[in-house]
């Protein structure tokens, strides 16, 4: 995973609440068996509308998505994270994220930043008025800065450390393989098995 320390970029103000994963990446894209090539599927239905914010020429190259509350609701598809990353987004700001989406984003190094809706509104106003306005998302200092706006955000220490270091979860867990083996020895024998142990 690519490490995330601090990122500065222009933004896409997405004035939508409950942006579900079927909007982020429709199901027919999920037939792909790779982690890349999802950029054209991102918000596919909405992008058919020329007025849609992502289609505005001044939003080209934006890397910060500022969305309404309950972003990423719905399915567990990590393809939603891949689609955002494939398109070029490095971070998403919202007042509330769906749990699974947030977990997926943290695995893949897409930083999800929770800020109060009032702050999101200010970021919308700022970036709508000036599409060249840049937003800095600083994971080191847990802070979002844009123009006059400075907003601290919360993220647990462990996730922050993993993202800053770009660490792979599986590798971290396998450091504790002995604990896993010891735990397995204590499991009740009547627990179901899907196939005989060979």
């Amino acid at each position: 995973m690519e490490a995330f320390t601090t990122h500065t970029g222009t933004a896409v103000p997405l004035r939508e609440s409950n942006v579900d994963t079927d909007q982020i990446i429709p199901a027919h894209w999920l037939k792909k068996v790779t982690r890349d090539g999802f950029e054209d599927g991102l918000f596919e239905a909405w992008r058919k509308n020329p007025e849609f914010v992502l289609n505005q020429p001044e939003r080209a190259g934006a890397t910060v998505l500022v969305a309404g509350p309950d972003f990423g609701t719905g399915s567990s598809r990590e393809h939603a994270v891949w689609a955002l990353q494939n398109y070029g987004f490095k971070t998403v700001i919202s007042a509330r994220f769906a749990d699974i989406f947030r977990g997926n984003s943290q695995k893949g190094g897409l930083l999800t930043v929770v800020l109060p809706q009032e702050t999101v509104e200010r970021l919308w106003a700022l970036t709508e008025a000036d599409p060249t306005a840049e937003i800095t998302v600083d994971l080191v200092d847990r802070q979002v800065r844009a123009g006059e706006l400075v907003a601290d955000f919360e993220i647990d220490d462990y996730t922050r450390w993993r993202l800053l270091e770009g660490l792979d979860d599986i590798g971290l867990t396998l450091r504790h393989e002995e604990d896993i083996t010891s735990f397995e020895a204590t499991r009740p024998t009547w627990l179901p098995r899907t196939q005989p142990v060979g």
Binding site: S76, I100, D169, I170, E177, I180
Partner: peptide
């Protein structure tokens, strides 16, 4: 799959997970 919550009907703790977590469970249980 997010509808893994279904299995909670049995008093199991059942979570929907993403693909990175699928890989994690396959590798480490």
């Amino acid at each position: 799959d997010s509808h893994t919550a279904t299995h909670g009907a049995f008093g199991a703790l059942a979570f929907g997970i993403g693909t990175s977590q699928v890989e994690h469970v396959l590798a480490t249980q």
